[in-house]
Simulated scan of single mutants.
Amino acid sequence: NQEWGWIKKNAVINCSLIYKKSDEVSTPTDEMLEGATLSKDTDTLIKASKNWIRIELKGLVTTLLLERKKHPKKTPMNTFLKLIINTIYGTIASEFFSVENVCVSSVVIGNNITARARCLAWCMAKGFHSVMSITDGGVFDVNSVLFYKRKSLNLLEGLHRDKLSENTINNRRKFCYKKPLMGFEIDFNNPNCYKLMLENMGFIPDVDDKKNKYTCLSIIDKKAWEHLASIFDIDIFNYNQFEFETKDIYTKLILHSKVDYYLEKPNNNGYTIAFRGMPKVWDDSIKSKVINPLALDLFKAIENDTPLKIEIDTSELLSLSDYQIKKKSDGNYPLLPHDSVSVKKVFYSHSPKSSRVASLSELKKLEKRYETAKKSENAIEVAAVKKWGERLSKD
């Protein structure tokens, strides 16, 4: 209640839908079976029934989720069941099934489901002090998560640029501090780290250290969920509406942007790369596509603070929007959407996309400078924009 004024001032409602209890029916009415009537000119709703039918999906989805857990990840049956589960959500969320005579979906309900997952990611960012959030996850330091003396939506929203989040001494206004999630620090570069962690918690380690690692990751998951639940008094945690897992442990991170990253396992024992837009290349030894080695060159350039530009000639599917633009300027344009087209892609090591600015106006200034620098095709000029963005972040 005390933050209702803040919500009214800052929230923007783009769309809402109300399902009245009084409009619920057990079987379809004639009006429902007629479907919806849309304007041919504006595609807006002209006529539709207000009645609705409740379809319980919990039993079906729970059965599928439990069955999927019986099969290891990336096995055919696990993948198959994952696709079936995703299809249930996709049917709810897709506009394709929401008009005319197939009113089985609601984009508003789909938005609410997605909003809860986004809310969880937001809570993870604020509770773990994540380096980044990607859809429904992120990267965080298990030895340095946030604990709060007090909190409000206003404080949490501005946390990433607020100096009060730092461990300053004798700062009476400080509202949060950093502390190890487990209550003690873990040196993941130590080959015996999982054994030591279990012993520190009073558990007897297994002789198989792979099992020790699995046990430790499960404990971290449980502790992480409890940590978030202690901060946020919301349905997601009160009713355990989600669950999450720690995918793996890494001791080195190189960021290119908010979504492009290099993660290295302890003692240089493997790595994971994500580089959106970078086309994968075929590896004949494993008969599969892999990350382009040029992505590694870009991350190495970031690590050494050496501006680098890489050009790649590749092909991609013609998008519908690009097709429409081409067709508008050339009525005889020969290609169709999803036809393969040749493109030249340019990547820069020093991207300002990872800069966290204080306002939308500053973000627009940053993007404008970035677009201008890219036109020069000069890696040093692009790197200068990144440094300018970093100064904005500090300010």
Rank of each mutant, 00 (worst) to 15 (best):
G5M: 01
W6L: 10
W6H: 07
N14E: 10
P28N: 12
L33V: 05
L33N: 12
A48N: 12
W52G: 03
T63C: 10
P72H: 10
T75H: 09
L81T: 10
I88A: 13
F97T: 13
S98Q: 15
V99W: 12
N101D: 09
I109W: 04
G110T: 11
R116L: 15
L120Q: 03
L120F: 12
W122T: 08
C123K: 03
G127W: 00
S130I: 00
V131N: 01
V131K: 03
S133Q: 04
I134P: 00
I134T: 04
V139M: 02
L153V: 03
S165N: 01
N170F: 01
C176W: 05
Y177E: 08
Y177H: 11
L196I: 14
F203P: 00
I219R: 06
A229L: 11
F232Q: 10
Q241M: 15
K247E: 15
I249H: 06
T251E: 04
L255F: 06
Y261G: 00
E264R: 12
G270L: 11
T272C: 05
F275R: 08
G277S: 05
K287H: 03
I302Q: 14
I302L: 15
T306C: 07
T306Q: 13
E311Q: 12
D313P: 02
L320S: 12
Y323N: 11
K326N: 15
P334N: 12
S349K: 07
S349V: 04
P352E: 02
A358K: 13
Y370L: 04
T372W: 00
S376H: 07
I380F: 02
V382K: 00
K387S: 09
K387R: 13
